[in-house]
Amino acid sequence: MGDVVVFFRCLANNMEAAVRSTRGCDSEQDSDSDNDFETSQLGTKEYWEDAYQKELETFKDIGDVGEIWFGEESMNRVLRWMDNAKIPEDAAILDIGTGNGAFLVEMAKHGYKNLTGIDYSPASVELAKSVLQAEGLTHVDVKELDFCHGGLEGYDLCVDKGTFDAISLNPDNTGGVKRLYVQALKASLKDQGLFSITSCNWTKEQLLERFKEGFEFVQELPTPTFQFGGKKGNSVTALIFKRIR
């Protein structure tokens, strides 16, 4: 049920963004606001710890890994880009907010060997480790870590599929948390390292504004579209950035 709520919140946020676009709102002011959307418990660690604790119990009971954030196509979309971009199999890859570890499993099955997943939820980390172990992928590293607090470095590729969305809804100092995220991302990536972000809360223009300092836009990945107010928009935004000095 929680994922259904997230979906409709995401869709509403994209429709809101489409309305702002049709009204000709100032892009920079709108994108860099510290109060872009209404905050929510969906942005708290407690919410996700509770959600993953339930998924962990379900996995232990019946072996169900739980929801795949944005669906399987969201993973396949990034994997196709990784193939086309010729990301080396030994590239150091960080999965930010790994959740149940589903994307780590898919990347490992795709041949990537140097994978790390992090999440600030202890239940998420236990669930991801359990899922990986069940798949025989015990070489994949999963750590309990709050990405915004930093401490990571040396990655060739960082992947975010919904984590920036979640922290953007944090009711406590949402603007500060978003800025900490960008700083942590800069520190985590090597020079010329790549960043893949999939979001349902943010438009392309807003993400370009948010990551304009220290990053270069590389490309937009094709995602589903919707019509609203005579305008066409994307229900999900997927962008690739490169870390620059």
Rank of each mutant, 00 (worst) to 15 (best):
V182G: 02
E55F: 06
Q53F: 07
G66A: 06
E126P: 08
A102Y: 01
T174Q: 00
K186G: 13
S188H: 05
F228K: 09
W202K: 06
E73T: 12
E67A: 14
S121D: 09
T44I: 09
M82G: 02
S235T: 14
S74I: 09
L194T: 06
Y181I: 12
G214L: 08
L221Q: 06
G176D: 04
N114H: 11
Y47A: 07
E213D: 15
M107L: 12
D32E: 14
S130G: 07
V19L: 15
T198C: 11
R245G: 15
L185S: 07
E46V: 00
T163M: 05
E153Q: 15
E67Y: 13
L185M: 09
S199M: 04
K242M: 12
Y120G: 13
F103R: 05
R245V: 13
G97F: 04
L194Q: 03
S40W: 00
A134R: 11
Y52P: 00
V236H: 01
N76Y: 12
N13S: 13
Q206T: 09
D36W: 11
L180A: 11
T198W: 00
Q206M: 12
I244L: 08
D95Q: 09
E49T: 05
L79D: 03
S27D: 14
C10L: 13
D165M: 08
T39G: 03
V236D: 07
F195E: 03
L132T: 07
A238C: 12
D119V: 04
G2L: 15
D119Q: 05
D26T: 03
L79N: 08
I62E: 10
L42W: 05
K204V: 10
A91I: 01
Y112D: 06
T39S: 06
S121N: 08
K231N: 14
L11P: 04
P171K: 01
V6L: 14
L194I: 13
T116P: 12
V131H: 03
E135P: 05
M107N: 02
K113W: 09
K60Q: 15
G71A: 10
W202C: 04
R243P: 05
G154R: 04
P122G: 09
S33N: 01
K212C: 10
Q133G: 12
G71M: 10
P222F: 03
K143V: 15
A108D: 03
H149L: 15
F195T: 10
T58C: 03
Q227Y: 13
